[in-house]
Design a protein around this nucleic acid. Structure first.
Lengths: 348, 348
DNA sequence: CACCTTTGCGTTCACGGTAAAGATTTTTAA
DNA sequence: TTAAAAATCTTTACCGTGAACGCAAAGGTG
């Protein structure tokens, strides 16, 4: 059975166009266009008359026709790895909120951080004539770089580093933030600190978190043990696995720097399930601070990765570029901080 | 400074149209249109020639123009309460995956379950000429109902009940699922079972979960105590609050039926933080089964709410309706089950 | 071989707006 | 009063594509 809504085709209302409004209001369609677009060159009386007809006929401008004529769609493309992953969802919400604020809609697509999909999606977005694109990706590969270079519309990277520094982007200082996190662990006297990073094909993990981890250790004259560097996926289960892997070592670590909250929780549970206490026996610091961080015992001490803000600022930046406003700096660095909770011992 | 990408306006590539391709290939634009749209009435040699030119000129059909001419945008609108909420994100992913499979893109928007926003968003979607809409909402209010009734395009409700049974929808049997959950607690001997529902303005909470809770109790000849019914928000903190509220009662409950995983985790932590053991002292069953359910100790026993599937099936249903295929049943009920873990004692 | 189908391709117009240019009316001011 | 200026409105040329329609060439049929 067809949808009750549309049992009979007549149920689909025929669209009323700007011509219909014009005719009913005894003005030209240009005038209707003006009142619809808030152009001031319309006599108040005329505007009122038109507005009434619009109301009566339930006229709704056809955004597609408008887009064709004006070459603006008031739509931006958003390409993210995976919306079902909390961190991207958070960013997406930031993007959408600001987009809404500036009257844009977003076309959202998941890339699964698959280069091929990313390229296809960019092409799709270009074809759909979006006015701009916000992109989140693990790494700006050469092919990606090339496609973005040829983009007919502005692109802003969110939470994504472009090593060529050629595109607008919004990030935090991942290196510094990671350095501070590891330092916090070092300050608590740990000599064996594991780094459960998340995939190393992600530029942020490989070039910033990892490098910062190494630097913090060597600055403190601590040995860098490759066995303590675990490039797992970002999931909860890989956190548990990482724990298991590393605790079979002759000299297991006493502290962990985890690349994400899920990873950190996996580690915490791995420890607790095996009779270790956090933070008494094992200390863990995370890098994310999603709401999950408070939903474990002990609650996680974590570097704050302000995903919502990153998304929001990226979108704001995009509106400026689309609007051809002057941009002070196209590479925005948002301040970060560490939220201290219970998975690391107080040190004062 | 402007984006490096576009230092000079010439950097914006001028768009190549179907005419350009036609001219270069010495054919009419109709022929180009045919090869682009896979029409078979083109000689292979001609097709090849056109394809080459398309490649060389990097021609990309303008989806906006196409949309205007064909009255199809291959875009569907998705209205959900909040993408940063895991359950909606999960559903969104299901929707997007199937949409991609059928070559649709999605315009995603957050309504914050605010009726006004929902109405505005519907109007926006209509204006953008989406080919269909997937909607998730707390409740189909009269106004919403009316707007949807006048929709120029098909709408499918996902995880949302429409009491008028007038729209296509995809759900599970919330009543039955809830009944089973409460029964499980009753079977374990509990006489005082609290129901921490989530907001009651949500139809699913008020009409199904709550009713099922009451029915399960009365069927077991247990007293229904209004003090044990807690319409909190769905958040972790409200779970903790619910715990605190209810444990001050003279006869506190010994088991909880929680409307969501976050709520359940809040309750578990509330209990644990106060020296109670789960499930020894307190049993908790949740309704959601997100990945969170496994990320607590004890892991949550939970009714499985298959959000991804609900989204995917809703989108699939929508494609059928958009395609004017015959629909067996426009109100789809997906099977549910209860995932048994550790927050409820084994009973055999 | 006359005639009817297909196949392959070109012409033309509609889609529903925007915006520039031109026309008309109203206002301002000498 | 009246012409120039300003305000308001109409005309019209697109925007890039799909699709109906038309027509010629090729293939089939009896």
């Amino acid at each position: 059975m067809m949808s009750l809504q549309y049992k009979n085709k007549e149920a689909y209302p025929l669209t009323v166009t700007i011509y219909d409004v014009a005719r009913e209001a005894n003005v030209s369609m240009a005038t209707v266009s003006r009142v619809v677009n808030g152009n001031q060159n319309v006599k108040p009386a005329t505007r009122k008359k038109v507005l009434e007809v619009i109301e009566r006929l339930e006229y709704r401008p056809n955004a597609v026709a408008r887009g064709l004529a004006s070459k603006k769609t008031t739509t931006v493309g958003v390409i993210i790895p995976d919306i079902s992953n909390n961190i991207y969802a958070e960013a997406a919400r930031g993007i959408e909120d600001i987009a809404t604020m500036y009257r844009y809609n977003i076309i959202l697509a998941n890339s699964d951080q698959n280069e091929e999909k990313e390229l296809t999606l960019l092409d799709t977005m270009y074809g759909k004539q979006v006015d701009g694109i916000v992109m989140m990706s693990d790494a700006v590969t050469p092919k990606l770089h090339q496609s973005m270079d040829h983009s007919p519309v502005p692109i802003v990277l969110a939470g994504t580093v472009d090593e060529s520094n050629q595109f607008a982007s919004v990030n935090i200082d991942y290196f510094q933030a990671s350095y501070e996190a590891v330092q916090m662990l070092i300050a608590n006297g740990h000599k064996r600190i594991a780094f459960v990073s998340g995939p190393l094909h992600n530029t942020i993990n490989s070039k910033f978190k990892l490098e910062a981890y190494k630097k913090a250790l060597s600055d403190a004259r601590l040995e860098i043990d490759e066995q303590l560097i675990l490039p797992e996926e970002g999931s909860y289960d890989s956190g548990i696995e990482a724990w298991e892997t590393v605790m079979t070592l002759e000299q297991p670590p006493t502290a962990f720097f985890a690349g994400s909250d899920e990873l950190a929780i996996g580690i915490v549970h791995g420890a607790q399930d095996n009779g270790y206490k956090v933070p008494e026996d094992i200390e863990v610091i995370s890098f994310e601070n999603s709401k999950l961080a408070r939903m474990v015992r002990p609650q996680l001490t974590s570097v704050v990765l302000p995903l919502y803000d990153i998304g929001a600022v990226a979108m704001r930046l995009l509106t400026k570029i689309m609007n051809k406003e002057e941009i002070e700096d196209q590479e925005v660095i948002i301040p970060h901080r560490i939220e201290v909770r219970k998975s690391v011992k107080k040190n004062d």
